[in-house]
Design a binder for these strands. Structure first.
Lengths: 238, 238
DNA sequence: GTGCGTTTGTATGGTTTCGGACAGACAACG
DNA sequence: CGTTGTCTGTCCGAAACCATACAAACGCAC
């Protein structure tokens, strides 16, 4: 059985941001599921059947190119909801979604969620705010991909992962991180070694341990903090 | 007086996609305005007062970094609407918006639009679809910024501009294009010269002329077509 | 037509990342 | 204990792009 609360507080930021009575109505329909590493939650162009609310683990939003290369354009952790198309009641998804760090989530049928949101303006408002934050996050990533160095982006990613792993150690190969960051694998290896020498992380065979979080924050680009602040401003404070 | 129809057809794709009766209700509130080159339509974090529907000209969505550098994360032409935050009835914008190619637009007070959208589910549906396409566009840009060469991105941008300029010639300096693409200016100069030598464009002192559109399409990355198809699938066909 | 601001063309050395390759290290399994 | 597959460390030449600088061309205003 998946434990989906921490104490009395539900362990997902999106659900926590909903009006209390909306959450009460949704609760019976929330189904706990496991997030399996590298599982594809949905592909691009699909009809979104479920909306997922991670309570542990990280899900990447990735855009795939026709030559097969993929790049991460955003990530959803324990603060968010997976499947913007589902939230927006759309007939098809606009990108793909992949589990990066294993964990667990609550999920609900998109149609059910949509009907509740249509009836409850407070709930629809949270949806719109969350969509806006996601827009901001993806836009930030677009700019970040152009302007910031591999090391900065690497630190940003590790911070994001650390937030949602609920653990200082998590599984993550250079290969996969390189794929997400849209660079060659050796580039990640060199960067990871530099971070390790600086005492920020500890890497060994597909497992990374965050050793010095403030150090990572200092080496990450501003994008990590920018997205977090936007989330706090638009979703948390209501 | 700005001419905002072409024949009987309103010259903006977003407005055209609205249910006919919704458009009829909005029409008295649509105010024609000029789009002045390099004008900032809104800054990040502002309360969005108006929503703009370009009928000629191109508006860039840009993300500004704390060091002052800016990068384009998306663009809105005659098919779209400027100010996603306004469409989503949010209290603040998540990025900035800049006029790239001068032209004209219709605008409406965000509050008015919001009230109409709240009453008309068909209209709200178009809004949601458009927001999804914008998400897709920004995500595509994020991936494009990482994977594609300057030349490919340059061609993509010129195609986008050509679509909304309603003219084969438009004003655009290397300097500004470099800013949008997030590269150094000399890089754009070299690329532009290459495209000119190949007979695709004609550049002279701040004015570019598209000479061979199919040629540009062949040299652009897949991102131009990908975004266009998504727009057609989600917004045009209803 | 002269002057001045803007725009373009070009040069150069340095850095980052690419793209591909290969050997060593680790761990899981029989 | 050895095999096998995965993961990491490293190397290399090539390409793209950075950062900066400066000169030439253009066009508008006087």
């Amino acid at each position: 059985m998946v434990e989906y609360t921490r104490g009395d507080v539900i362990a997902n930021g999106f659900l926590r941001a909903l009006p209390p009575d909306a959450l009460t109505r949704l609760r019976p329909h929330l189904e706990p599921v496991e997030l399996v590493r590298r599982q594809s939650i949905y592909a691009a162009g699909e009809d979104p059947a479920y909306i997922y609310f991670p309570i542990r683990g990280l899900v990447s939003l990735v855009k795939a190119m026709s030559d097969g290369r993929v790049v991460e354009v955003g990530a959803v952790g324990v603060e968010g909801a997976v499947c913007l198309s589902g939230l927006l009641a759309l007939p098809e998804t606009v990108f793909e979604s992949l589990v990066q760090l294993p964990g667990a989530a609550l999920r609900i049928k998109s149609a059910l969620f949509r009907d509740e949101a249509a009836r409850d303006p407070g709930m629809a408002d949270v949806v719109r705010r969350y969509v806006a934050v996601s827009l901001g996050q993806i836009a930030q990533t677009a700019a970040c991909n152009r302007l910031h160095s591999l090391e900065e982006r690497c630190c940003r990613w590790l911070l994001l992962a650390h937030d949602s792993a609920r653990d200082d150690t998590f599984q993550l190969t250079h290969e996969f991180l390189a794929l997400m960051l849209g660079v060659q694998r050796p580039g990640v290896t060199i960067t990871a070694r530099a971070l390790q020498r600086a005492g920020l992380i500890n890497y060994q065979n597909g497992r990374v341990t965050v050793a010095d979080r403030p150090g990572l924050e200092a080496n990450a680009c501003e994008c990590y903090a920018a997205v977090r602040h936007q989330y706090e401003a638009l979703v948390e404070r209501r």
